[in-house]
Design a protein around this nucleic acid. Structure first.
Length: 761
DNA sequence: GGTCGTATATTTTTT
DNA sequence: ATATACGACC
């Protein structure tokens, strides 16, 4: 048991706890993964069968890494552990057991785009106003209901929900939910939430199935427990009910997925559900310097709902945290890119991979990409449009999905006229009507089109049906593996040819992406880990990939990382740049509805800070492009909340950012104007006045020296308008003004080194 | 049915 | 800036 040696006391206790419920509260950088790895290894060394261990992680990548690390301790047995995300593990179980619920093992998994497209269709069919019934809103309501285990029947029966929907002026919400579920079922498809929702139904209504898995999984472990939703928690609780060997690991201070249904109460109230719970706190941070830990603690201490923790470190003091002010998002990009360049030059031992730029929204990556490219710094972007969300990839996948499951309505809509074969909306609508009239599925109609329609216009449909039938033959009769089918489908459908003939730069990239997809399928088939090489299995695994999961060329890893704070969870970097610290951006304006929302944003800020090992720089811009226009920004309130003894204002580089103020260039001509992109004519038209964002010339508003201010004075603020200074607080570098504003914003505390004010005479 | 031009809305994070 | 929707026209 030599691996126990390097552990501290609470870590060792956690590893050696075998029987009974266990909760590990693991502060940032406290060696959580290590504990989880060793504990699993320890269990196996003490005779627990790896097949009976269920380890639920947050991403597939985390599962893969954990498996790798366990393997290095105990060898090949690690392969047998049930390890993966909630979604992938229970998709697998539903594949086996789904028949109990009326699904076949080939059910499709609808991604968010599919769900949205279905909802859009339903809104249209039911003649609802799509300005009122916004797709995102409807999907959110449905998703929330599913995550709280409220099915459509229950939804319709709930007077509370009915009241809510009436107030929100969407009284048909319940009906929409019901028809959405019906259509998904008809399509033999589950959306992301269904994978958990239906698992709950399965375990609720089929006790023999539940029993089987309860006895199968003797030990259930959940990583990132703070980010589980009610649905996930209930599944775990049920599975662990017999053996009571449930071990949850998490940090309430890092709960950042409430928008997806994660319920921080799961971890805060875990003790209530298990009377004989052992709780172990890992509070020593091995990752970051004292300065970083102190700043992080100063932030998180402001949150009310949290478990008591005392995170400390024995690491060195480290450098101060630098706050960088930039005049625009472009300057922010340049400042940070050049800092990265200089640091790498000056200091020993830094590689590109030691730097990370973290932002709140994916859209912020643009200015950094440009600046990094200009300095020839290699970078990679995690997230954004992932590979599997690209159009050309989704097209092929839609074909494959339809070959496996002909009820898949969304896949059908995507491919029926792709490549163009002269089947328009009218024809498709006719088919749908015919199907409904004869109580048949769409495929039944399509595959026997001659029975329903005269010769007129049916030829292309017949061709399409024959094509699909030939693909089906390959899968069902000839039992070809995923790669053989996919490469044939790509060619025979004409998708490859269409891309090949497109000689533009984008066309070439799309062609390469398609090849890349085929490579990925080949890898899947060739990999020894996958026993089942069928198309159906491949499709399921693909639809559950997260954007952190994309594999990289291991020889080419030395790159600066750009990603959102959300996707940085669980990672660490020597040098972190946390950018875009502006009010309404971080914390996000969209997010802030309640105190709880603010606390979640603060936890997000905490997560970002604690990714840094040695150095942390935080930046904000005074103006930023949004929808093509320049908008002025305020520094984030979070900057005021940082422990100022560890802060240092970095000097702004002198030059004003002129490029940001450059007027829109008029385009004289355009080679080819395509539908869907802004046309030349639109560019030539005078720019529309957008009253929301007007750039106020900063010359009028200045950072006012504290000496020139006094309590009771009236000031005008660049954004909040007129206000009265209630109180001035000047403690060394920390200079704050409490200002009561006259408009709706109320009282705000502004940091004087940031705020731009005009003194009103 | 397909293509193009124009109006309009968009504002977060992700399995 | 860019995605989408819709109407005019071929």
């Amino acid at each position: 048991m030599d691996f126990l040696e390097g552990l501290n006391e609470p870590q060792r206790k956690a590893v050696q706890h075998i029987d009974g419920p266990l909760m590990i509260i693991a502060g940032a950088g406290s060696g959580k993964t290590r504990v989880l790895t060793y504990r699993t290894a320890y269990l196996i060394q003490h005779g627990v069968d790896p097949f009976s261990i269920l380890l639920l992680t947050f991403t597939n990548k985390a599962a893969g890494e954990m498996r790798h690390r366990i393997e290095s301790v105990i060898g090949s047995q690690a392969k047998n552990i049930w390890m993966g995300t909630f979604h992938s593990i229970f998709a697998k179980i539903l594949r086996f057991e789904g028949e109990r619920l009326g699904y076949t093992s080939n059910f499709s998994i609808y991604d968010t785009d599919d769900s949205k497209s279905l909802i859009r269709a339903l809104i249209k069919e039911q003649n609802l106003d799509d300005k009122v019934y916004k797709v995102n809103l409807v999907l959110n309501r449905i998703s929330n209901a599913k995550n709280r285990l409220i099915g459509p029947e229950q939804y319709l029966g709930s007077s509370v929900l009915e009241h809510e929907d009436r107030l929100a002026k969407i009284p048909m919400m319940g009906q929409l939910y019901k028809s959405y579920c019906a259509r998904c079922f008809q399509a033999n498809a589950m959306d992301f939430d269904d994978l958990l929702f239906q698992t709950n139904i399965l375990f609720r209504d089929h006790l023999d199935v539940l029993n089987k898995y309860q006895h199968k999984f003797k030990h259930v472990m959940v990583d990132e427990f703070q980010d589980t939703n009610v649905s996930q928690y209930l599944i775990t609780k049920k599975l662990a009910a017999v053996n009571q060997n449930i071990c949850v690991v998490g940090d309430d201070a890092q709960s950042i997925y409430a928008f997806r249904g994660a319920d921080i109460q799961n971890i805060l109230n875990f003790e209530r559900d298990y009377a004989d719970l052992t709780t172990i706190k890992l509070e020593e941070n091995y990752r970051s310097t004292k300065a970083i830990v102190a700043v992080a603690n100063s932030i998180i201490s402001r949150n009310k709902s949290q478990l008591k923790k005392d995170v400390f470190t024995s690491n060195e003091e480290g450098d101060q945290i630098e706050i960088i002010r930039a005049s625009s998002d472009n300057e922010e990009g340049r400042l940070i890119a050049s800092t990265i360049f200089e640091t790498r030059q000056k200091e020993v031992g830094f590689t590109w991979a030691d730097f990370a730029i973290l932002y709140r929204t994916n859209a912020q990556s643009r200015s950094f990409e440009e600046s990094l490219r200009r300095l020839n710094i290699k970078y990679r972007i995690v997230g954004g449009l992932s590979f599997y969300q690209r159009k050309e990839i989704k097209d092929v996948l839609a074909y494959l999905r339809f070959v496996v499951n002909q009820n898949d309505e969304e896949a059908f809509k995507r491919i029926i006229n792709l490549p163009k074969r002269g089947i328009g909306d009218t024809t498709i609508a006719k088919i749908a009507v015919t199907a409904a009239e004869n109580q048949m599925s769409i495929w039944d109609v399509v595959s026997n089109i001659n029975q329903f329609q005269g010769n007129r216009g049916s030829a292309p449909i017949e061709q399409f049906a024959d094509l699909i039938k030939s693909f089906k033959l390959m899968v069902e009769i000839e039992q070809k593996d995923a790669y053989e089918v996919a490469s044939h489908v790509a060619k025979a459908s004409g998708l490859v040819r269409e891309l090949y003939e497109d000689k533009t730069v984008e066309g070439l990239a799309r062609y390469q992406n398609m090849q890349e997809l085929l490579n990925a399928i080949k890898q899947f088939v060739d990999s020894e880990e996958n026993e089942d090489k069928s198309l159906g299995t491949f499709l399921q695994s693909v639809s559950l990939l997260t954007n952190a999961d994309t594999n990289e060329d291991p020889n080419d890893r030395d790159k600066v990382t750009l990603m959102t704070v959300h996707s940085a969870k669980g990672l660490e970097f020597k040098h972190v740049f946390l950018v875009g610290l502006e009010e309404d951006l971080f914390p996000s304006q969209m997010m802030l509805q309640s105190q709880a929302d603010l606390e979640e944003e603060r936890r997000l800020f905490y997560v970002a800070i604690t990714r840094a090992e040695k150095k942390l720089m935080i930046s904000y811009a005074e103006s930023r492009y949004q929808f093509g226009r320049l908008k002025s920004c305020e520094p984030s309130r979070f900057l005021n909340e940082l422990d100022s003894t560890y802060l240092k204002m970095a000097k702004v580089q002198g030059k004003k950012d002129t490029s940001a103020f450059r007027p829109v260039q008029k385009t004289g001509f355009v080679e080819k104007s395509t539908a869907g992109s802004a046309s030349a004519a639109q560019l030539i038209q005078k720019p529309k006045q957008n009253t929301n964002y007007q750039h106020v010339p900063s010359a009028d508003f200045k950072q006012t020296a504290p000496e020139n201010l006094q309590e009771g004075q009236r000031v005008e603020h660049q954004k909040f308008g007129f206000g009265l200074i209630k109180k001035l607080e000047i403690n060394g570098a920390e200079r704050k003004a409490h200002i009561q504003f006259e408009k709706g914003v109320g009282e705000k505390v502004l940091l004087l080194s940031f705020a731009k004010l005009m003194v009103v005479e």
